[in-house]
Each structure stands twice: as structure tokens, then as C-alpha cells.
Amino acid sequence: MKEETAIHVENLTKMFGDFTAVNAISFDVKKGEIFGFLGANGAGKTTAMKMLIGILTPTSGNADVAGFNVNTQPESIKKSIGYMSQKFALYDDLTVKENITFFGGIYGLTRKQINEKRYQLVEELELQEIVNELVSSLPLGWKQKIAFSVALLHNPKIVFLDEPTGGVDPITRRQFWELIYKAANKGTTIFVTTHYMDEAEYCDSVSIMVNGKIEALDTPKKLKEQFNAESMNDVFLKLARG
């Protein structure tokens, strides 16, 4: 495995009974890259991601995530990655501050580190006025930005984002992507699953999954050239309609 590779996947397969959810997929994600993992509902994205973050054991095949093997070292993987999903990001009935303390705590940060990180986070996102508010009272966009920063609290090597910006207003969504660029620029690898194609355009490279297989993998620009398409949306439509 090369030093520059953050995720290395080889023939990763997951079967549920007779049903092959993920069918021998292989790809590499470079360190510091923003990798878009696209696919329709039920294409196998979520299953594949669950294997990569160490909460689902593959049926066959292999993958190294942040230098750890998904088959043998899932616990080490969990420590070196961050995770955020649209469905669950922060506890609604805790304040921003309590959420930060809690998530810092479960990743084994000391009290001092948590305080430092919180101070830094509050400064960066300008949270001074809302740090003691309940998360439930915040607009969706704020929640997503804070959730992303919380996923970065323990300086993970890779962050997995599961459809992070659905329904967020356009301005906040861009602020969110600026945060992603910033993290990537510092060397954090970003792995994003989404079925919003405009989001795909922001990624350094993109894979498209159809029926458990990766059918396309390249930079958005090259994919558009390859499929002679105007946008990633068109690429996707052409791929999915065969």
C-alpha cells in the first residue's frame, strides 16, 4: 500500500442471503482527496460504507482504511475516522456545548483538549451566541456545520459523510463545502455519499455505483467528457438508463 493512499478497496463483497448488495468493488482514495461515492437508492452505497467504517463485516474481499484492515482491525478503524450522517448528527436535546463535550469524550479526548477544541470551534464557526442553545432550536444548516466540525474533533484521518447537505439552503450549503475544502486542504480525506448530483461536482473524484457495482470512477470533468454530458446529473442518467 502506497503512503499516499487513505482507502484501498479490493473486491469488497457483501451478500445478504442470496442478494448481493455490494459486488466485488475495488477502488483507491488518495490522502486529502474529496471522494464522492454516488449511486441511486438501493445501489449498495450504504452497505459499502458500513463495511469501510468497520460496523459491517464483508462477505469476501478486503479493504484498508487509514492503514487498518476492515476484516481484522475494525476497532482501530473506528478510532481513526470521523462520521456524520444526515439522519443522525447531533443530540437535539443537548446544547451545542454538551454535544461537543460528549463527542469529544467518546473519542477519548481529555477535558483540556475538549475545552481547547471547543474554543477553537466556537471562534471558527462564530458560535459565541448559540453555544449554550439546544441543538433542536438551531436551523438545519447550522446543525450540519456543527456536526461536521464535531466529526473532526479527534483529528481523524478520514471523515465519512453520509448525505450531509440535503435540504440545506444554497448559501449554507456552500459554507459547508468550504469547511470540507478546508479540512481536505489540511490533509483529511473526505468520503461523501450522496445522490444529489450537484454535490458530486464538488468532489475531486467520483465513483458511481449501480446495482452493487462501481460502473464509473474518475474526476467529474473526465466523467463528463467520457459520457459526453453537460453535468454529473446527465452522466448519472446515462449510466443508470444503460
Binding site: N41, G166, F236, A240
Partner: peptide, 10 residues
Amino acid sequence: TTGVDPVSRK
């Protein structure tokens, strides 16, 4: 069309 893939959306 929220939560629906691009093909179905189209």
C-alpha cells in the same frame, strides 16, 4: 422528489 435518485426524479 426529496430523497429520490436522479433517474426517478427525472
